[in-house]
Simulated scan of single mutants.
Amino acid sequence: MSVPSPEPRFTLFGESRSASRPEPGLYVVATPIGNLADITLRALQIIAGADRLACEDTRVTGKLLSRFGIERRMSAYHEHSSSEDGERLIAEVQAGGSLALVSDAGTPLVSDPGYKLVRQAIEADVPIYAIPGPSALIAALAISGLPSDAFFFAGFLPNKEKARAERLQTLQRIPGTLLFYEAPHRISESLAAMAEALGERQAAVCRELTKLHETVYRGSLSSLARDFGEMAEIRGEIVVCVAPPEADAVPDEADADRILTGLLAEMKPAKAAQEAARLTGLPRRELYQRALDMKGDR
């Protein structure tokens, strides 16, 4: 005999409120990146009413649920989860359930493993709904003081020096502000690598956004690398924003070849051409032909 799920409720401003059960589907729910007061009312309603929560870390999500008096079934879904784990979750939705996908902080799928689950939901023809909210990269861009009309999120740079330098080379000519996530123990060397590959661009290092010790450091890449190198201890989540290249630094064929060379070391020609087209704005078909020529696969 199955145990009935508790009535959907959540607590807000000391008042217990009811939450209706959402329609069957997968709900991609953004949660706070630090300050729990940033949770949206709709996010609380979905989290409280969903039949199950898919969480990056159930312990982290458990603290959020406790803060708002929510009791719901949780299942761990992280980078080590198998395809079968995702299939089981999607099967519950196909059977008429509602599933809320949350990450430890911010919007799921941004440097987060939820992409695989969303793809499985699409393939299963399951309805998918976005419940928008906090995002560290957008928050950082908004206060960086750098151009925000065009930007490119590059995630975390590779750990190894050579791979990091090659990755930065592929990002040199992107006509927009670059956004990176970075770990505290690597921030100084990453900023130095950015200065070497990208030149003396202005940048902003945003640390602990929305938290008690939120700090934004602004300056050139080399000066920021020097400043962080002199700090005794660095803690917290970090977003790095780097200004776009000068207006006359537009991608050309030489840039395309350099980018393709780096991408072909890790990707097949079709995928490399697609990524190079996104980075440079050049036609994918032309880039694919150049990739084939470079690989000798005509």
Rank of each mutant, 00 (worst) to 15 (best):
M1A: 13
M1V: 13
S2Q: 12
P4I: 06
P4G: 00
S5T: 12
E7Q: 14
G14M: 04
G14H: 03
E15Y: 00
E15R: 08
S16C: 09
S16Y: 00
R17S: 01
A19L: 08
A19P: 05
A19M: 07
P22Y: 06
G25L: 01
L26V: 15
Y27M: 07
Y27C: 06
A30M: 08
P32N: 03
L36W: 06
A37I: 00
I39M: 13
I39H: 04
T40C: 11
T40S: 15
T40A: 09
L41P: 03
L41C: 03
R42M: 09
R42G: 11
L44P: 13
I46M: 09
I46S: 12
E56W: 01
G62L: 13
G62W: 12
S66W: 04
G69H: 11
R72W: 09
S75I: 14
E79D: 14
S81V: 04
S81P: 07
E84P: 00
E84F: 09
E87I: 11
Q94I: 09
Q94L: 14
G96Q: 07
G97A: 15
G97S: 12
G97F: 11
A100H: 08
S103C: 10
D104Y: 06
T107M: 15
S111D: 04
D112F: 04
P113C: 12
P113S: 11
G114K: 05
V118A: 03
R119D: 10
Q120W: 03
A124G: 09
D125K: 05
D125H: 03
V126C: 04
V126S: 05
Y129Q: 11
I131S: 07
P132F: 08
P134R: 01
S135D: 07
I138T: 15
A140M: 08
A140Y: 02
A140S: 11
A140N: 02
A140L: 08
L141N: 06
I143F: 05
G145Q: 11
A150T: 06
F151C: 08
G155L: 06
F156G: 05
A163E: 14
A163D: 14
A165I: 00
E166W: 01
R173Y: 09
P175T: 10
G176F: 02
L179W: 13
Y181W: 04
Y181N: 05
A183G: 08
H185N: 12
S188C: 05
S188E: 12
E189W: 04
S190N: 14
A192D: 15
A192N: 13
M194C: 13
L198W: 09
L198A: 07
R207V: 04
E208F: 01
T210C: 12
T210M: 12
L212N: 02
E214K: 11
L221K: 03
L221E: 09
S222R: 14
S223D: 15
D227Q: 15
F228S: 06
G229F: 09
E237Q: 10
V239L: 08
C241H: 08
V242M: 07
A243H: 10
P245I: 10
E246S: 15
L260V: 06
L260S: 02
L260A: 02
T261E: 13
G262Q: 10
M267N: 13
M267T: 02
K268S: 13
A272V: 01
A273I: 10
A273C: 02
Q274F: 01
A277C: 11
T280A: 07
R285V: 11
R285Y: 05
L287P: 02
Q289E: 15
R290W: 05
L292R: 13
K295C: 15
D297W: 13
R298S: 10
